[in-house]
């Protein structure tokens, strides 16, 4: 069934009139997502798989990535957690091309856990740099890094100014003369969260690794 669907999409894309593709500033497509989530200690370790979608827009020196995802995190074998939870994440990244391979990046990330008390929901503004490189015709790769500012957690807690970091790696491969894009994206987040229940600050770090593999239609 999936093969038929893929074949139908390819045929549909191949008969696109070229005038619709002349700009090709926009792409959108589904993604398969897999991740690793840890919180507070090595015992709360989850691994999950899910789905999502990603859209990209490029206009002159500006570009934006919007990714939504939903994963079901299940307790890993090496941990003591017993309950699985769903994590919905909304990630927006706006970029402005600066010079050479460098672009400045600004955005926000919001992750909601369900059931609410199984993991921390959080939201933060992100800022950083994006370094892109054209590997070959139609093949782009990118490395990005940045900080997350002003995070808010559902269970409370604070971080130091440099306590929330983000690192990413991206790959885009154009196919069918740029009408189709295969993409892969890696996103690592580390938040050095601390809580204080009146007896002093206690470390309650959060760490997530996300891998996204997807396909997108370019317009």
């Amino acid at each position: 069934m999936l093969e038929w669907l893929i074949a139908a999409v390819v045929v549909f894309l191949s008969i696109f009139p070229t005038f619709q593709l002349s700009a090709q500033h926009f792409s959108i497509g589904p993604q398969m997502i897999f991740g690793d989530y840890r919180e507070v200690s090595a015992d709360l370790h989850y691994r999950g798989v899910g789905g999502g979608a990603m859209a990209t827009v490029t206009w002159k020196k500006l570009s934006a990535d919007v990714a939504i995802s939903k994963l079901t995190y299940k307790p890993a074998n090496d941990g003591t957690a017993t309950q699985q939870f769903d994590a919905r994440e909304f990630d927006v990244r706006l970029r402005y091309y600066v010079s050479g391979p460098i672009s400045a990046e600004l955005g926000f990330v919001n992750r909601t856990a369900k059931p609410e008390f199984e993991a921390q929901s959080m939201g933060a503004i992100t800022a950083g740099a994006h370094m892109g490189y054209l590997l070959g015709p139609g093949v782009h790769m990118a490395l990005r890094g940045g900080l997350m500012f002003g995070p808010r957690f559902s269970g409370g807690g604070t971080i130091s100014p440099l306590g929330a970091l983000r690192l990413g790696l991206g790959l885009n491969v154009d196919a069918l003369r740029g009408r189709l894009r295969f993409n892969g994206d890696y996103d690592f987040q580390r938040v050095s969260r601390k809580t204080n229940d009146g007896s002093g600050e206690l470390p309650a770090p959060i760490q997530q690794s996300l891998g996204r593999l997807g396909i997108a239609v370019a317009f």
Partner: peptide, 25 residues
């Protein structure tokens, strides 16, 4: 960057994307 209190970091996600990138290169 991995937090030491959370055990050894997972390289699965980065490894998959990185392998794809090296293959593309």
């Amino acid at each position: 960057l991995s937090n030491g209190n959370l055990g050894s970091s997972s390289m699965r996600e980065g490894g998959v994307i990185g392998a794809g990138l090296v293959l593309a290169g």
